[in-house]
């Protein structure tokens, strides 16, 4: 059963338009101008328990706006949103006890306990969510070791590294065992080791607890490794929904081809899309529906030592898609 249902969600913002300089400021004072921005234009999707949904798109696509609507911070302008059977914007106590929002750029602990220790923040959350001492200890211990935070509980938060702070924020968001977790770029700014550790933790955590997760990230490795399903958002609209594996087929009608010739290929006649990277190797992208035919032609005309045909990685597909001119 779906724990999150989003149906034709629209969220409209207004933003001021002011010409630069003092003159622009005076004009804005006298006659302010605002423009209407549709951050979300009819977004629909569902999320099941135990599912990790990768939610990707360029900056300004509407990812964070969606998460804020789902966590009850923003009101939808139009459309229907339901999380665990609640309308999030009503911010009912029972709803808020079952969700958590983690943002990579700032966090709850940093807000309330910057000069204090993670344990001070965790104890506050224990009372906030009404956890018994046993429950608190059990939940905390289950999170500390995999997130490598044991031994850091009494260090002021401002003295922790970015990676440690993000992991502490994750503990703070999971202490009450939320049923739905919204992760907004949780690996932002983390080094490769920390990213890897966080991904490993999330994968295991979701398997063990059945938590439903919506994950936004600019690091495609996060999405490739964790997401069961992918939603691609562009200019407030969903342009792809489905498995990560079939994204390339839908959004990028090319495949990456590498040919290693058995003899120097400088005088060979290569098809458009392929070019030499050294005197023996040609690389490039070919239209998906012509790959077979082009390769057969190459094989019949030239001596080939090695041939590789690959699906482009997620980052390449998305870059290709987002850089293409909007129709």
């Amino acid at each position: 059963m779906a724990v999150v249902v989003v149906n034709r969600l629209v969220r409209v913002f207004t933003r001021p338009r002011k010409a630069p300089g003092l003159r622009g400021l005076v004009r804005f004072y006298l006659r302010p101008e605002y423009e209407r921005v549709e951050a979300l234009r009819g977004v629909s999707f569902t999320l099941e328990a135990g599912e990790i949904l990768g939610y990707v798109g360029p900056n300004g696509a509407g990812k964070t706006t969606t998460l804020k609507v789902l966590s009850g911070v923003l009101h939808p302008t139009r459309g229907h949103v339901e999380v665990l059977g609640f309308e999030p914007w009503r911010r009912q106590d029972r709803f808020l006890r079952q969700i958590a929002l983690v943002t990579g750029h700032s966090g709850f602990l940093q807000e309330v306990a910057w000069d204090l220790t993670p344990m001070d923040g965790f104890r506050l959350l224990k009372d906030l969510y009404g956890l018994s001492e046993d429950e608190f200890r059990r939940n905390l211990e289950a999170l500390l070791e995999p997130l490598d935070l044991t031994g850091l509980l009494e260090v002021p938060i401002r003295r922790l590294s970015l990676g440690q702070r993000v992991r502490a924020e994750l503990v703070a968001s999971l202490l009450h065992r939320p049923r739905v977790l919204f992760l907004d770029e949780p690996t932002l700014g983390l080094d490769i080791v920390s990213q890897h550790r966080l991904r490993d933790f999330l994968r295991t955590y979701v398997q063990e607890t059945g938590t439903a997760v919506i994950l936004t990230s600019h690091y495609m490795r996060d999405v490739e490794e964790l997401a069961h399903r992918l939603l691609v958002l562009h200019q407030g609209r969903i342009v792809y929904e489905g498995p990560v594996e079939t994204l390339a087929e839908r959004l990028m009608p090319v495949r990456t081809v590498q040919v290693v010739f058995a003899e120097p290929a400088v005088h060979f006649h290569l098809p458009p899309g392929l070019s030499l990277v050294d005197e023996l190797t040609a690389r490039g992208t070919l239209p998906r529906d012509q790959v077979q035919q082009i390769i057969a032609e190459l094989l019949s005309r030239y001596p080939i030592q090695d041939l590789t045909v690959e699906e482009p990685d997620l980052e390449t597909v998305l870059r290709h898609f987002f850089e293409a001119p909007t129709p």
Partner: peptide, 16 residues
């Protein structure tokens, strides 16, 4: 300030 810079979100998503 928390409204202006958006950090009010951290309080609004918790049950108080």
């Amino acid at each position: 300030e928390s409204i202006k810079n958006g950090t009010v979100v951290h309080y609004l998503v918790r049950p108080w």
